[in-house]
Design a protein around this nucleic acid. Sequence first.
DNA 1: CTGAGATCCTGGGGGC
DNA 2: TGCCCCCAGGATCTCA
Length: 272
Amino acid sequence: VPELPEVETIVRGLAQTLVGKTITRATVLLPRVVEPDAKRFSRALAGERVTAVGRRGKFVLIVLASGRRISVHLRMTGRLIVGRGAAPETEPYARVILELGDRSRLCFADARTFGRMRLLGPGEEPADGGLGIEPLSEDFTSESFNSMLDGRSTPVKVLLLDQRRVAGIGNIYACEALWRAGIRPSRAAGSLSRPSRSRLHRAIREVLAEAIALRGTSSRDYVDADGVRGGFQNKLSVYGRDGEPCPRCEHLIVRTVIAQRGTWWCRNCQRR
DNA sequence: CTGAGATCCTGGGGGC
DNA sequence: TGCCCCCAGGATCTCA
């Protein structure tokens, strides 16, 4: 499941290989994963030059010379692979192929087809419901996070996953940040003490930065734009580790469900 | 406004 | 060992 650190790693790779290249042809193999319709999508992209590649939350943003952008959301199993070998014959589950001027290709592959590739007009934003603050930006201060929690009865984990508030945190890093901060995931957000909020704010920034440094977490499908796995899966403290001892206190990690999502945590040292 | 639940998909894990 | 069934999981939409 690509979250902020995985998307950031992909984006850094794409920036190296895509910028300056021209899209000579766009082939849509599965029409329902693109917007607008496949015909308009491929017609609009032919001849476009890539000027930059960026990220907003979990969205990859490919900036084009015309001012339009392609947004890509990988959801669960999406991949973006660049190379000469990135073709329908060699990439399983290829959904969209962008042919580049130098005979290489950008392939959007996705087994479960939840991912989306969307052409955005100038000024158009990638998420329909809007995106919240970037957790690694200067704007994400302890103060701004603190006021985000005020008066909210929703479980703090649900709040962390809400892209309209903080953009880019998914299930893995929500679980990991809560563990680092020693906070029970089901705890009502607004009921957290000020020191707890501050610890959580810090934990979020730390875990995301560390994961980026290790090029993300490869639990199953994720690989970067060059097809390389990340390294943070070896550093996970709780995610996916039910039945194993907590790295901090040795109590067994449990898996519960919050808002239909698997939630891994330590009953002993996440009591705040 | 807030939250609960359904929806979309399919590989692979679990159960038998 | 093999087969079938069921379900995870992010965002969005509907409904209460």
